[in-house]
Design a binder for these strands. Sequence first.
DNA 1: ATTTAATATTGACCGCGGTCATTTTCTGAC
DNA 2: GTCAGAAAATGACCGCGGTCAATATTAAAT
Lengths: 198, 198
Amino acid sequence: MSRPPQKRRLETRARLLEVADAQIANVGYSGLRVEDVVAEAGVAKGTLFSHFGDKDGLLAVLIGARMMAILDDTEASPAPQTVTDLVDRLLPVVTFVAEDRVIFDLLLRYSGTTGTQTDEVITQSFFRQIALWAGWVSALQATGEIRRDQPAEHLAEGMQAFLNHVLALSFCAAHGAPADFRKELGGYLTAWLAPQAG
Amino acid sequence: MSRPPQKRRLETRARLLEVADAQIANVGYSGLRVEDVVAEAGVAKGTLFSHFGDKDGLLAVLIGARMMAILDDTEASPAPQTVTDLVDRLLPVVTFVAEDRVIFDLLLRYSGTTGTQTDEVITQSFFRQIALWAGWVSALQATGEIRRDQPAEHLAEGMQAFLNHVLALSFCAAHGAPADFRKELGGYLTAWLAPQAG
DNA sequence: ATTTAATATTGACCGCGGTCATTTTCTGAC
DNA sequence: GTCAGAAAATGACCGCGGTCAATATTAAAT
């Protein structure tokens, strides 16, 4: 039958993640090459794939970890008091996602799946982010800063939709997302989240 | 200086597109292999890349053409009279985009760029679609079916944002988009487009 | 007709992600 | 200790997108 993973396997996995993370700091997510990772980690190619399935699986773990770190910071910071504050709170995530097209694509790909082994972290980070935003929205609904005619979770998912949209357009065009973020997404969101009668 | 393309080149390009389109009917967009296309077209590999840059460039032309065909049909049909009608009018596009993950990715990638040679068609189709939707929205704003506090173009882009979001989530989850389309996107859009005071 | 220069095409070659039968290493049973 | 069997790791191999210096074709100039 199936036994728990052995010590050696866990060490190999940790070393692969460590090496990949270090190399990404130099060449970026798009520039990462599997052969370089296994060479520096001192393992064979097949070993990496047996751990993470494919290259995206490896990246998903690293990206999920960074998303979690960003969410840790964000949760530690004070809650937004206005819609403008709320939009500003999204900046760290947007900046990270805009760092590399690969990040955007992978978050889009893994964010909705029920967690398997490889995409566990990235999936959790996604739901955690929506929950965090919904909490903010709910608080601002109470103060009348945000419309009350829709549930906070619904509005939070809408925020995600707008964010994806602007990021996608930003990747298409030459300009990076963070620079124009406040103008474009800010305009969408403030209008959309504004209180309304009925 | 630069001369206009020669007859032979145009013929080669047309043949490549023809063959690729036929093969896609069998194997789907994801299943298309460059080597098969050039083999059946009777040209060398490098020729294809000199025409379309990369595989995505070839697919972009074909996808753009299909988008244009869908838009032709849609424009020929009667204009929507209600928000529900409007949501229904989006179905042909959604069905097409959901046909293959590659379509979604490529539309996202090329839709915002200023037209170069390869992505010209897909870019035009994007702007045409937004303009078409904006026209519908504008008409429904006049009859009071849709909120008037934002310009029609703004709302049309928002529709695009929601549509992308739902499609992305649909690709992540197991269920296909068209089935749940009316429920998810319809819910978002009707609430968002509803008239409001202020 | 011949030359000339731009254009169009070729096909050998490469990079890199991914596979899989084989070998090595570990763990528990006796 | 040693033997059996599972887990882990190996490395030769493959598929396929993409490149590029060399070659062939075309159209204009003389």
